[in-house]
Design a protein around this nucleic acid. Structure first.
Length: 276
DNA sequence: ATGATCTCCTGAGCGC
DNA sequence: TGCGCTCAGGAGATCA
């Protein structure tokens, strides 16, 4: 389940391995679009065949979106739940659920593999509008995500803190795991209404978000079943999770059993004793 | 306008 | 061993 640290880990790998490479051939196994079987989540404004001949200039990220800067456009990538970008050598057996294979000028292949097909691949030409990120809040690790921004957003939201932090229009990059972990670190209940966050906790919440993301990034992210980076390495942060997927186990701070509840049809894990 | 709910999808894990 | 059920969740669509 790639959230910001996992996507950033992949971005760094792509920046290192893909920058300067040219796509020499494109094989789309499935088309992006909504109708019919075996399609990804959203239609691409340009045929992915347009990748052929383009060079990769850089790899950027906003929230959980990856943007590969090309010689004439941008390839926008969202990994959804189970999307992977994997390098391979020619002749290696192709993995199931491969949607796109790019041949590179150094002989390697870069494949987009996504069993659950929540992922998204969109090719934009240089002058195309890229509406996907409209309305997104600042990236959680960018300098414009400040305590002041957080305070202002909190004040205008009557949803619970869990839903607030999951909302990419408030701050981009957090998902279920890091929202649960950041709230635990701050000692705030996921059920607390966002605008009722105590003023003296806002700076701490902001810092907890940065800390949990940085800590995870330092471990290459969190892996359960699906996530691996571009060379197939799982992340190691799962060993440091305080509440996520720890229902019934003792809170690392106070020893009370971690509780699991459902919010917006998603699991929330928290300590009922020390998260207020 | 805002927040809550539904939807897409497949593999893993579980009980029988 | 194998079948069928439930669950996981990002984010856009839809509903209240």
């Amino acid at each position: 389940m790639p959230e910001l640290p996992e996507v950033e880990t992949i971005r760094r790998g792509l920046q290192r391995e893909l920058t300067g490479r040219t796509v020499t051939a494109v094989e789309a196994r499935t088309e992006s679009g909504r109708r019919g079987a075996k399609r990804l989540r959203a239609p691409s404004p340009r045929s992915l065949a347009g990748l052929e001949g383009q060079s990769v200039l850089d790899a950027r990220r906003h929230g959980k979106y990856l943007m590969l800067g090309l010689s004439d456009g941008t390839l926008l990538v969202h990994l959804g739940m189970t999307g992977k970008l994997l390098f391979s050598e020619p002749g290696e057996p192709e993995r199931a659920h491969t949607h796109l294979v790019l041949e590179l000028d150094d002989g390697r292949l870069l494949s987009f593999v996504d069993p659950r097909r929540f992922g998204l691949l969109k090719l934009y030409a240089r002058d195309d509008a890229m509406p996907d990120l409209d309305g997104f809040g600042p990236d959680a690790l960018a300098t414009d995500f400040t305590p002041e921004h957080l305070a202002q957003q909190l004040a205008s939201c009557s949803a619970p803190l869990k839903a607030f932090l999951m909302d990419q229009s408030r701050v981009a990059g957090l998902g279920n795991i890091y929202v649960c972990e950041a709230l635990w670190r701050t000692g705030l209940s996921p059920k607390r209404m966002a605008r009722r966050t105590p003023k003296n906790k806002i700076a701490l919440l902001h810092q907890s978000i940065l800390d949990v993301l940085q800590d995870s990034l330092a471990q290459g992210g969190t892996s359960f079943n699906d996530y691996v980076d571009h060379i197939g390495q799982p992340g190691k942060f799962v060993a440091q999770l305080a509440v996520y997927d720890r229902e019934g186990q003792p809170c690392l701070r106070c020893g009370v059993a971690v509780k699991r509840i459902t919010q917006a049809n998603r699991s929330t894990f928290y300590c009922p004793a020390c998260q207020k």
